[in-house]
């Protein structure tokens, strides 16, 4: 076990009094070669045999490179519903940011403005548009294996970018457009009206939202009736 000789980051670095002159150049110790080299020292040690054994087993497995489909979609959860949008339509998914109230404009669907890297974007409530209840969601997904974070997703429509909040970004997957089921002719639920199809993921049905239609109807809530 190597002992760290010079723990400058704890003394003059970001974890210490921040007096190190290199900070001007690297901003944070984690970008400084002194720190990275010290971190590399960590890997200079014998591999425990159980690691090698588990890795040996891991590496015999074939890589899962089966072509799943031609559409890349990002799946997220809103209340109990699983929804998806085309990954191409997503600008970025970020941690939840504060929403700024807009006088005379903010209503149940339009929540206000969000500062996303210096760009002010309109923030809407997707659950309100789709009529999905987010109440009691905490009890729905009490998962001890991993933490569940609320996220904000920025989506680009035909002409504009906008933001909405989701309860969890589940992940990105590829689906084939053939595997999608057409909408029932008598679609009554709002999330079916706004979706371009439904596909199945681990026995759960996921509605693929049409981002243009969603953006359009968000936009229309801003106009005076």
């Amino acid at each position: 076990m190597a002992k760290i000789k010079n723990k400058c980051w704890n003394e003059i670095g970001v974890f210490g009094d921040k007096s190190c002159e290199s900070l001007n150049e690297y901003l944070h110790c984690k970008y400084c070669p002194v720190y990275t080299n010290a971190a590399k020292e960590f890997f200079e040690r014998e591999v425990p045999p159980e690691f090698i054994n588990s890795w040996t087993l891991d590496i015999t497995r074939r890589k899962e490179t089966i072509e799943k489909g031609n559409l890349s979609v990002t799946i997220f959860r809103l209340g109990d519903e699983l929804l998806a949008v085309l990954t191409d339509a997503i600008v970025v998914a970020v941690a939840v940011k504060p929403v700024h109230f807009v006088p005379f404009r903010t209503n149940r669907t339009f929540r206000g403005l969000v500062n996303l890297d210096g760009e002010l974007l309109l923030c809407y409530s997707l659950e309100n548009l789709l009529g999905i209840s987010r109440n009691g969601r905490e009890t729905v997904e009490e998962n001890e294996d991993y933490a569940v974070y609320k996220r904000m997703i920025a989506v680009k429509g035909a002409n504009e970018k906008l933001v909405f909040e989701v309860d969890e970004v589940v992940g990105v997957t590829k689906i084939s457009s053939d595997s999608m089921t057409e909408l029932p002719a008598t679609a009554k639920k709002a999330d079916e009206i706004f979706s371009q199809g439904i596909f199945h993921l681990n026995d759960k049905s996921v509605a693929l939202l049409d981002e243009h239609r969603v953006c359009e109807s968000f936009r229309s809530t801003l106009k005076f009736q």
Partner: peptide, 19 residues
């Protein structure tokens, strides 16, 4: 990569303290 380095550093420091 940075994340791996930071994790390693954390492990190192904990290790030392424990020792």
């Amino acid at each position: 990569k940075r994340l791996a380095e930071e994790t390693a550093m954390a492990a190192l420091e904990i290790e030392e303290t424990i020792r």
